[in-house]
């Protein structure tokens, strides 16, 4: 697989040479592959947000390098802006970035900065709104009139409209209701499948990460603790709980069932999978006609 982002001894220290010195990211060496869905999990303050903000050059690392398509992003200061168009970043609670008179104009802000014009601009905006499930009826409204969920969708659309190669989402579902979260994540996944671009999702929800991510990066105290497929990571439940994390609820239920002698596979990560396996088992035992 082709590497799109590569980090080399990446470190970030806040308040360098002051009594408040704090290492947020510590000697990180990771590869992000083109077209993958990478999940990042970690306890609060484990350096997840600092890491993703370095990946598109918003924060300069105190040490180490970041390579995008093999090129050091801090090598040329003038090219840094281009990096930000290639690596789109959706912040936590992105609603606060809305400022234009209409939703349409606000979504257009990023792509216009990128230099997209004319009919291409219009199709970028409409595409982005479709992917996030933002109704086109809202285009002429002021972004401040929207509901919380609609604002979130408009803000995410503003990033997707820049057609980035890598899309980073820092807890995009924080503060949304359960239905809204499921819908938004499904739509992000649809977008990922349709464009086959790279997605980096930072989340606190093990269930969401288990459902969508191809690979998972586990951060602890600024270091990369594990990096592997969902099955690899969630099979190490004990190590995760030492870091204040846990496996998805359904996985721990299945593990308890297994401990009681019920023969289910060990690597069940979603409710659907569990449903499928349990009904297969019941069928085998003759409980289902």
């Amino acid at each position: 697989m082709k590497t799109i982002i590569h980090t080399e001894n990446l470190s970030l220290t806040y308040g360098l040479k002051t009594p408040f010195e704090k290492k947020a990211v510590d000697d990180l060496n990771i590869d992000i592959y083109e077209g993958e869905f990478l999940g990042i999990i970690g306890h609060t303050g484990s350096g997840k947000s600092s890491l993703v903000q370095m990946l598109n050059g918003l924060i300069k690392p105190t040490q180490g390098k970041i390579f995008l398509n093999g090129k050091d992003i801090h090598a040329d200061k003038k090219k840094l802006r281009e990096v930000r168009f290639k690596v789109g970043m959706v912040f936590q609670y992105p609603e606060y970035q809305l400022f234009e008179e209409t939703v349409y104009k606000d979504i257009a802000f990023g792509p216009i900065n990128k230099g997209i014009t004319g009919t291409e601009l219009d199709s970028c905006i409409r595409d982005a709104a479709r992917f996030t499930g933002l109704n086109e009826i809202l285009f002429d409204k002021s972004p401040f009139e929207l509901s919380g969920g609609e604002k979130r969708r408009a803000a995410i659309s503003g990033i997707i409209a820049m057609t980035p190669d890598v899309l980073i989402l820092d807890e995009p579902t924080a503060g949304l209701d359960p239905q809204g979260r499921d819908r938004l994540l499904r739509q992000i996944n649809t977008y990922h499948k349709a464009k086959s671009n790279t997605i980096v999702l930072v989340s606190h929800s093990m269930e969401d990460i288990a459902r969508y991510a191809d690979r998972i990066l586990v951060m602890n105290k600024g270091r990369c603790e594990m990096l592997g497929t969902a099955k690899e990571v969630f099979s190490q439940g004990e190590k995760l709980s030492e870091m204040g994390l846990r496996v998805p609820q359904i996985t721990s239920i299945v593990q308890k069932l297994r401990a009681n002698g019920i023969e289910l596979p060990a690597d069940i990560l979603t409710v659907e999978q569990a449903y499928f396996e349990i009904s297969k088992l019941l069928d085998k035992r003759g409980y289902i006609q």
Partner: peptide
């Protein structure tokens, strides 16, 4: 702090 956050978000959208 808020200004810092907003500046970062708009820079991420290519604000110069």
């Amino acid at each position: 702090e808020e200004t810092d956050k907003i500046m970062m978000a708009q820079k991420a959208r290519g604000a110069d």
